[in-house]
C-alpha cells in the first residue's frame, strides 16, 4: 500500500499568542510542532504499513521551516517526505491548499489512501479534507475514530466515523481520503529514525513542478479574506472560593450562587 499522510506545522498549543497592530500573529519562542491531529494520522499510517507493507510518504505545504515537521514524521517512521513550497503559495485558503495538495498527490502516481488530521489547531477549519477529496474525486471519510478493516485485494476499507450522535460505520472503495480523530497513541521518534531524518535530503516541489500557474494559487486565488485578527476581549473571572463548615453547607451556598447566576 502507498499511503500519503498530510501534516501541517503549527505553533505549540500551549504557546501564548500575541497579535500586533498589523494583525501579525506571534508565539514568542514557543516551539513549532506537528499539528496534534496529524500525529494520529501519521501513527495510523505507520500501523497500516506495518500490517500490509508498502510505504508512507509525508507531505506538507508550508515555509522552508516546515521541513522540521516532515523530519519528525520521518523520525517516527515515514519513508519519504516532500515539502511543497513556493512564495506564490502564501495566503492560500483551504480550497486552494487542497488544490495544491491534490496536484502533489497526483504527481506521486499510485496512492491507495490519503490520511490527514481532523483539523489544524491554528486555522481550526477542518476544511482541507473535504476540499481535497473533491479535488481528487475520491470518497471522503472524515472524523475517523477507528479503522475496522482493510481488504487490500478488494481495495475496500471500513471505518467508524465519529459524528454528534454516535459512530457511523462506513465502507468505501480505495483510494479514499481519511481524516483522523484521536484514534491511537502516537509513537515517539526512534533513535534510528532521528538519524535517518537528520540525513534526509527533502525535495521541494514548487508551483511549476506541480503544473500550477501562479494565478491558481496563493491569496489571489483564494476567496476567504481575513481583514483582522484580534485577541478576544479578556474575561476577567475572579474566582470566589466557597467555604463552609461541612460539604452540606458548601453545597447550599454553591446552589444559591448558581441560582442567582440563572444557570441551573
Amino acid at each position: 500500500m502507498h499511503i500519503v499522510v498530510l501534516i501541517k506545522q503549527t505553533p505549540d498549543t500551549t504557546a501564548a499568542l500575541t497579535v500586533d497592530a498589523s494583525g501579525r500573529i506571534s508565539w514568542g519562542d514557543a516551539p513549532l510542532i506537528v499539528n496534534p491531529w496529524d500525529e494520529f494520522a501519521v501513527e495510523e499510517s505507520l500501523r497500516l504499513k506495518e500490517r500490509f507493507g508498502g510505504k508512507v510518504t509525508v507531505l506538507t505545504m508550508g515555509p522552508e521551516s516546515a521541513k522540521e515537521a516532515l523530519k519528525q514524521a520521518v523520525a517516527m517512521g515515514c519513508d519519504e517526505a516532500i515539502l511543497l513550497h513556493d512564495p506564490a503559495f502564501e495566503g492560500s485558503d483551504a480550497v486552494v491548499t487542497a488544490t495544491i495538495l491534490a496536484a502533489a498527490i497526483r504527481k506521486l502516481g499510485a496512492v491507495d489512501l490519503v490520511f490527514m488530521g481532523k483539523e489544524s489547531v491554528d486555522g481550526n477549519s477542518a476544511q482541507v479534507p473535504p476540499a481535497l477529496a473533491r479535488r481528487l474525486g475520491w470518497p471522503l471519510l472524515a472524523y475517523v475514530g477507528k479503522i475496522r478493516e482493510i481488504d487490500p485485494a478488494a481495495r475496500t476499507i471500513v471505518v467508524e466515523r465519529i459524528l454528534e450522535e454516535g459512530r457511523q460505520v462506513v465502507r468505501s472503495p480505495l483510494p479514499a481520503v481519511l481524516s483522523a480523530m484521536q484514534m491511537n497513541e502516537p509513537r515517539y521518534p526512534s533513535f534510528m529514525g532521528i538519524r535517518r531524518a537528520a540525513r534526509m535530503q527533502i525535495p521541494i516541489w514548487t508551483a511549476a513542478d506541480l503544473g500550477l500557474a501562479p494565478e491558481q494559487v496563493g491569496a489571489a486565488a483564494s476567496a476567504a479574506r481575513w481583514p483582522a485578527v484580534f485577541a478576544p476581549p479578556r474575561q476577567e473571572v475572579q474566582c470566589e472560593f466557597i467555604q463552609g463548615e461541612s460539604p452540606e453547607e458548601i453545597a447550599r451556598i454553591l446552589v444559591d450562587r448558581l441560582l442567582a447566576e440563572k444557570v441551573l
Binding site: A94, Q127, P130
Partner: peptide
Amino acid sequence: STARGRELAGGLAAELGTAALVD
C-alpha cells in the same frame, strides 16, 4: 457547525470555487 455541516461546507466551497467560514 457539526461534523456533517463542516464536511459539506468544505465540499461545497471546492465544488463552487468559493470559500467556507466555519464556526
